[in-house]
């Protein structure tokens, strides 16, 4: 029983939590890839920006991190729209590699701006011992973990409803399928691109806030997450939001469970190799199933 408790509290729950965070980031990456046909390497730093927007809001108004989410989402979306307008849009007609490389530049710019404004030291949303809730009298789950997982589920369900039932969602999927035909159908690509930035940016902001809430806020936090997020997006098949949700969860769980002492008393892998697990999964996918687990489309 003790063993099971340790497994759930120290491995499974953290796995699901980081999986939710990866999923939220990976959805943005994959949507942007579908609509704009390039890999947005600044997505991790967009997350960082979201975390710092929330930090500012929490510092100013003393909000609970969950209440700071809408503020972070709005500010991050605005940031993404500005970046798109001034940097990516003028390059839109160039080969997508140009956009990809320029997103590296944006990543550096966001990170450097944050370091200038907030310094390089770590920040925290909440200090002190965290409240936790007991389940069935045995499982002890920190409240923030419950919040994170629940919010992630709500957002993913909301995204599902948007993609399936709204005109905007269908148009987004249409542009992802065939931008040329979407144009002939009268769908304004420009509007869809903006909407994608707002959705991708908002989800990245949430992921950033959750990441900061679960640990600390630091200028490199998002950049460090780019690898597992890309792994999640590739695992699910680029351009497939549902794949990214599953991919995120799989990568998060794989990372945490890889350090569980499956055989004997020692960790299977030292926790230091967590990132390596995501990397290994990504490389294996690229070799054997480059279209993702569910057979996405690679351009």
């Amino acid at each position: 029983m003790d063993q099971l408790l340790v497994f759930i509290n120290a491995y499974l729950v953290p796995g699901i939590v980081s999986g939710s965070i990866y999923a939220l980031g990976a959805i943005g990456l994959t949507l942007l890839f579908g609509v704009l046909r390039f890999t947005h390497f600044a997505h991790g730093d967009v997350m960082t920006a979201g975390a710092y927007f929330a930090l500012t809001a929490i510092g100013l108004f003393g909000l609970h991190p969950v209440l700071a989410l809408p503020i972070a989402m709005v500010c991050t979306s605005a940031l993404c729209l500005c970046i798109n307008h001034f940097f990516y849009r003028p390059l839109m007609r160039r080969p997508s590699l140009v956009l990809t490389i320029s997103s590296f530049g944006i990543a550096l710019m966001i990170r450097a701006s944050i370091q200038l404004l907030y310094g390089v030291e770590s920040h925290y949303y909440v200090r002190g011992i965290q409240r936790s809730t007991d389940f069935l009298g045995t499982f002890r789950i920190v409240d923030r973990h419950i919040w994170i997982v629940c919010c992630a589920i709500v957002l993913m369900v909301a995204l599902h409803l948007l993609l399936t039932y709204t005109r905007l969602g269908k148009a987004m999927r249409a542009v992802s399928d065939s931008p040329e035909l979407a144009r002939l159908t009268g769908i304004s690509t420009l509007a869809i691109v903006k909407a994608t930035w707002v959705i991708g940016g908002s989800l990245a902001a949430v992921a950033g806030v959750f990441l900061g809430w679960d640990g600390f806020i630091q200028a490199n936090m998002g950049w460090d997450l780019l690898l597992p997020m890309s792994a999640a997006a590739i695992l699910g098949g680029l351009g497939r939001p549902y794949g990214a949700m599953v991919g995120g969860l799989v990568i998060g769980l794989a990372e945490e469970l890889s350090s569980y002492p499956w055989f004997g008393g020692d960790a299977l892998l030292s926790p230091g190799y967590k990132t390596g697990v995501a990397f290994t999964i990504m490389v294996a996918m690229l070799i054997w199933r480059p279209n993702g687990l569910f057979g996405g489309r690679v351009q």
Binding site: A174, L181, I187
Partner: peptide, 22 residues
């Protein structure tokens, strides 16, 4: 168009609905 004239990952009805996008 002659080729690429449908959205393959969308359902038949979704394809038609997009025809009435505006």
């Amino acid at each position: 168009p002659q080729t690429e004239n449908i959205f393959p990952s969308l359902t038949v009805q979704e394809n038609l609905e997009l025809g009435g996008y505006f």
